[in-house]
């Protein structure tokens, strides 16, 4: 298992295998490691490398009328035309803005809620903590397709539980379809995404909190720090690395939210005004066969992901060295 307190200095080449150094065997040039990683490389290049290459190529090409009449003709090279077309298309800009807003909202609310739940788990007794942990694990374990059928049923406009409960609170919501309006559609999508994501975040942060030594907190308490001060000035800085990593993972994962949106769209009926990046590309590629533009949007989405992931990958690589 990894641990960050291991010395980070690289072992010198000729050093004898002392305790603590990573047990690396052959340092001389050898074909064996390459043979071992070859199957992984072949599969990944075939299933991802090639499509990404095709996508890059296609995003600079145009399949026009000429090619439709004569499929043997090679597509025209059009440079950045597809990107310009996409980036000046108000529909795409709306989808991009909505996706970014959605993913940041979902990620921040998830991490804040997860942090609060982790603090709560620290505070309550064993039994309450176990109940909360089991509930979170069950929600986390639900396959997304199965959980989506339940959510669609919960918000169903005829006899869903949501409308019943709101009705009991005195609101006039009988037969109101929440999925028919883009704003309430996204509120519901947000709740579902956050519900599914909080368990991972809360349990990860809780694991991090458990590592903070009790003595430090007690010492602060002796010195007269209030509960809020201890959380703000001791717990928060110590837990910051975990917080930043889970926040980053959430942002990357929430940017590509697809299944939830697809299920809600299927159930609700309104389509275009509720598209996020994933469903937008899906419709472009499957529905309209404008591959040049679909490829350009895909490339933009991949670049966005790589840019966002860079910090995460770097921080893990640092531990590796």
């Amino acid at each position: 298992m990894m641990s960050v307190d291991a010395p980070a200095s690289p072992a010198p080449e000729a050093a004898p295998p002392t305790a603590g150094a990573t047990p690396i065997r052959r340092r001389r040039r050898s074909l064996t490691p390459w043979l071992l990683i070859a199957p992984a490389l072949v599969i990944i290049i075939a299933a991802m490398g090639y499509p990404i290459f095709w996508q890059l190529k296609t995003s600079f090409q145009k399949y026009g009328l000429k090619q439709q009449f004569n499929p043997d003709l090679p597509p025209d090279f059009v440079g950045f035309d597809n990107y310009v077309k996409v980036l000046t298309n108000p529909d795409f800009l709306a989808v991009l803005g909505r996706s970014i807003l959605f993913c940041f909202l979902a990620a921040f609310i998830t991490v804040i809620l997860g942090f609060l739940l982790a603090l709560l788990m620290k505070r309550v007794g064993k039994v309450a903590r176990l109940i909360l942990q089991i509930a979170l694990l069950l929600a986390w374990a639900m396959p997304v397709a199965a959980s989506m059928t339940v959510w669609v049923w919960l918000v169903d406009w005829r006899n869903g539980v949501l409308n019943y409960l709101l009705g009991r609170l005195g609101l006039d919501v009988e037969n109101h379809n929440w999925l028919a309006d883009p704003t309430t559609f996204f509120v519901i999508a947000l709740i579902i995404v956050i519900w599914a994501a909080v368990p991972f975040v809360a349990l990860s942060i809780y694991a991090g909190l458990s590592q903070i030594s009790e003595e430090v907190l007690e010492a602060a308490q002796m010195d007269g720090a209030t509960g809020w001060q201890r959380t703000r000035y001791i717990t928060l800085p110590l837990i910051a690395p975990v917080l930043s990593i889970v926040l980053l993972l959430q942002i990357v994962w929430d940017l590509r939210v697809f299944t939830q949106i697809k299920f809600l769209q299927d159930a609700g009926g309104v389509a275009n005004a509720t598209d996020l990046l994933g469903t937008y590309i899906y419709k472009m590629g499957v529905g309209s066969a404008d591959f040049g533009s679909a490829a350009a949007v895909s490339v933009i989405m991949l670049l966005l992901t790589v840019a966002l992931s860079w910090y995460y990958v770097r921080s893990i690589m640092k531990e590796e060295d």
Partner: peptide, 24 residues
């Protein structure tokens, strides 16, 4: 480089590739 590639690939969204994967 191999480790770096694995970590990055693990983050790539299927939604950013699926049209190309379908064509393939």
């Amino acid at each position: 480089s191999f480790i770096l590639a694995m970590l990055l690939i693990q983050m790539l969204p299927a939604e950013g590739m699926f049209i190309a994967q379908f064509k393939m």
